[in-house]
């Protein structure tokens, strides 16, 4: 709180800034990096210096050089180009999956907390059971049953991460639901939708977004793990996690091919969480 009050100058963007929201420097840095990667995700294809799958160097795990800004990978492909191309998959898939998983989880969690009773019990047990199915088995079954595509991948991830999000949101909402102001609102005869959007959500938004930030990180990292199920991004493209994984042999050689994708992942995930921690404060301040 103290930190956020130090800086109140707003950004000149049609963002919350002009609408009177307070937004501190850490949040701005986070947002800037996220926007940067979002732009790269869109234009990466055109700015990449080499085709993503082309072997440009007969040597492998090459060093940083004028031709290859981030070195070359295990096959001698340009890592810089591969990171630029990978941005689209990492940012896009992670954002899509995390939005679906958390939106679904949070909304269902709040509804379950407000309605309670049999609905809550059934939904909670169903999602517990869903979480009880090992995700490896789930992944393989999905590939076997419906094949693989980016859409399937996003949906699978959403299904895998929804129950956790639901459980956490529900635990928060249940607590808020017992507060006096909710009881009062309910006594006023407010509808469930009102209770959820106006009374519950503003009071759980902090932890729920923190949860979302973590889930975003997990999804970015788990993408590469799913590619061995055939669920991942198809070659020659690769998401950033896959870039780290396929070049992991370069770790002992200190190859830039393994360092730069890691930095890309870290810059994105840290920014997302930095941004979430420092959301424009008007949203966070329920009290005024």
């Amino acid at each position: 709180m103290t930190m956020t009050k130090q800086r109140t100058r707003s950004l000149r963007l049609p963002t919350p800034a002009n609408l009177g929201y307070r937004f501190n420097w850490a949040g701005r840095i986070g947002l800037t990096v996220i926007l940067f990667w979002a732009v790269i995700a869109v234009i990466g294809r055109w700015v990449a210096p080499y085709p993503v799958g082309e072997i440009v160097d007969f040597d492998y795990f090459g060093p940083v050089s004028g031709d290859y800004w981030m070195g070359t990978d295990y096959l001698g492909r340009d890592i810089f180009s591969r990171i630029l191309m990978g941005a689209r998959y990492t940012v896009g898939i992670a954002l899509g999956a995390v939005t679906l998983a958390c939106a679904g989880g949070i909304v269902l969690g709040m509804i379950a907390a407000v309605i309670g009773g049999l609905f809550d019990t059934c939904l909670s047990r169903f999602l517990d059971a869903l979480n009880g199915i090992p995700s490896l088995l789930f992944g393989i079954v999905v590939v076997a049953a419906v094949g693989t595509s980016i859409t399937v991948l996003i949906l699978t991830l959403a299904v895998i991460y929804l129950p956790g999000s639901y459980r956490f949101a529900r635990a928060l909402a249940v607590n808020v639901n017992t507060m006096d102001f909710v009881t009062v609102a309910r006594a006023r005869g407010e509808k469930t939708s009102y209770l959820i959007t106006r009374e519950i959500f503003p009071n759980i938004v902090g932890p729920v977004f923190a949860d979302l930030g973590l889930r975003f990180v997990f999804i970015v990292l788990v993408l590469s793990g799913l590619s061995f199920l055939g669920l991942g991004v198809q070659p020659p493209n690769a998401d950033w996690g896959a870039l780290v994984r396929e070049n992991i042999e370069g770790l002992s050689l200190g190859a830039p091919a393994v360092v730069f994708p890691c930095l890309a992942i870290a810059s994105l995930t840290i920014s997302v969480n930095l941004f979430i921690d420092n959301l424009p404060t008007k949203i966070r301040d329920r009290s005024d």
Binding site: I140, V143, F228, G230, L231, G232, Q234, P235, P236
Partner: peptide, 9 residues
């Protein structure tokens, strides 16, 4: 079109 399929099966 390179189709990477699961090693499993």
């Amino acid at each position: 079109e390179v189709q990477r399929v699961p090693a499993d099966g």
